[in-house]
């Protein structure tokens, strides 16, 4: 938690709970019990080429506990709850959970729905990746490429397990590949 404000921590925790996320205050798992994907450099050049899309974080200066807290906190910002339209009301002192609206193909029917089905997953992955990058990189984390199937394993499933896996990789041995630069 470091020195983060109590109020901010409370709000983020509350947002995390409301969005099904875990928070840094949760009991710390034993890293020895956590199974993670193999991060040995892939022979497939596509993996490195697509590192800006499929990556994990690593920081040589953090413990597992620090990485767990950082990842839990930053992943709490992934909670997405529809589209906000301004002007609006924000209670500020308590979490907001609005009626999800999501994307709609509107009156464009099947063609619109087909286009949305292509775009939305890519848009959402890009938004989630960028939120994590903006939160994690100032804390000293670099990105390393990983195969898409392994990225899926690190990002799809029970949130507490995802945070634990990512924290183990983030605080583990430095990857043998080069950082993702772009």
């Amino acid at each position: 938690m470091g020195g983060r404000s109590i109020r901010g921590a409370t709000l983020i925790l509350a947002a995390a709970i409301s969005g099904g996320q875990v928070a840094a205050q949760d009991a710390l798992p034993d890293p020895a019990t956590i199974s993670v994907p193999d991060i040995a450099p892939s022979a497939d050049p596509k993996v490195q080429k697509e590192g800006y899309k499929f990556f994990f974080f690593h920081n040589p200066a953090v413990s597992f506990a620090e990485a767990y807290a950082d990842i839990a906190e930053c992943r709490s910002f992934l909670v997405r709850d529809g589209v906000t339209t301004l002007p609006t009301f924000r209670p500020w002192v308590e979490p907001v959970k609005r009626k999800p609206q999501g994307y709609s193909a509107g009156s464009y029917g099947l063609v619109g729905a087909a286009m949305a089905s292509i775009i939305v997953p890519k848009l959402e992955r890009g938004q989630r990746n960028n939120k994590l990058r903006r939160c994690m990189q100032p804390r000293g984390y670099a990105r390393y490429a990983i195969a898409e199937t392994d990225w899926d394993r690190l990002n799809d499933g029970d949130e507490a397990t995802l945070v634990a896996m990512q924290a183990k990789l983030a605080s583990g041995p430095k990857p043998a590949t080069t950082e993702v630069g772009e």
Partner: peptide, 29 residues
Amino acid sequence: VGLFPEPGADWINRLAPVPGILGYERGRV
């Protein structure tokens, strides 16, 4: 002002540092 959640935002960012007022240290405000 420290970190706060906004689940309706497309992206998250921070106000650029303001000398004498707003700084950052390893992600903390």
